[in-house]
């Protein structure tokens, strides 16, 4: 464990809590992409199957369980409890355009052709693009609530911090996972436009709106 990974994990946890709190407090999931959230639940489910086969640490097990539970909790709030507030008209990104190619790629490019390893690879690839429906939704409506933009900033920062963690681990532990690093860089790049808008608008007290 190093400081980058720890702060990355904390940012990730913070993002998930922020989203749950936003939905709970406002009793609404308006502006949140149910498709991105479904894919995140799929990401955690396929990645953390090793909860059953491997024990790494109490920290690792606890965080994995929190991530899985919270992703399904978010889906419950969005698709059952506050279903009436779900903005499906604006959530029109086609998930199959991401899930199908990512599934194909995880069969072709992986560390080991075994079920758990392929599912782990699938989750890494899917995570890198799972935010696209959310970003697409914001580009369609032209704006995001401030709390939603805080959520996205925390969520994007997490993988950026992981990149620093991988640089650290490469130099100090000789650890290098090409699949995670490439996917993590792709994931972070997808946020760059959002990061720019967030820093130039939300940090100056304005709402996140897209230039016309």
């Amino acid at each position: 464990m190093n400081v980058f990974r720890l702060t990355g994990d904390i940012a990730h946890l913070l993002a998930i809590i922020l989203l749950l709190m936003k939905i709970w407090k406002t009793r609404s999931c308006a502006g949140v992409s149910g498709k991105s959230q479904m894919m995140f639940a799929l990401v955690f489910t396929t990645r953390y199957l090793d909860l059953i086969t491997n024990f790494i640490s109490l920290y690792n097990t606890t965080m994995k369980m929190i991530f899985i539970a919270s992703s399904y909790g978010t889906l419950y709030l969005m698709f059952l409890k506050f279903r009436a507030t779900y903005d499906s008209n604006h959530d029109t990104f086609r998930m199959e355009f991401l899930v199908v190619p990512v599934a194909g790629l995880s069969f072709l490019v992986n560390h080991d052709f075994s079920p758990l390893e392929i599912l782990w690879t699938f989750s890494i690839y899917l995570e890198s693009v799972a935010i696209l429906p959310q970003l697409f939704m914001i580009s369609k409506t032209g704006e995001a609530e401030t709390i939603t933009s805080h959520y996205l900033f925390a969520l994007g920062s997490y993988r950026a911090l992981y990149i620093l963690n991988w640089v650290y681990r490469f130099y100090f532990e000789g650890f290098f996972d090409l699949i995670a690093v490439v996917a993590g860089c792709v994931q972070t790049v997808l946020y760059c436009d959002f990061f720019y808008l967030y820093i130039t608008k939300v940090w100056k007290g304005k709402k996140l709106t897209l230039p016309a």
Binding site: D9, R47, D50, I56, N60, F67, E173
Partner: peptide, 10 residues
Amino acid sequence: LIGSRKKDEL
């Protein structure tokens, strides 16, 4: 260490 080993990251 390349890739496939016990995954300690989240």
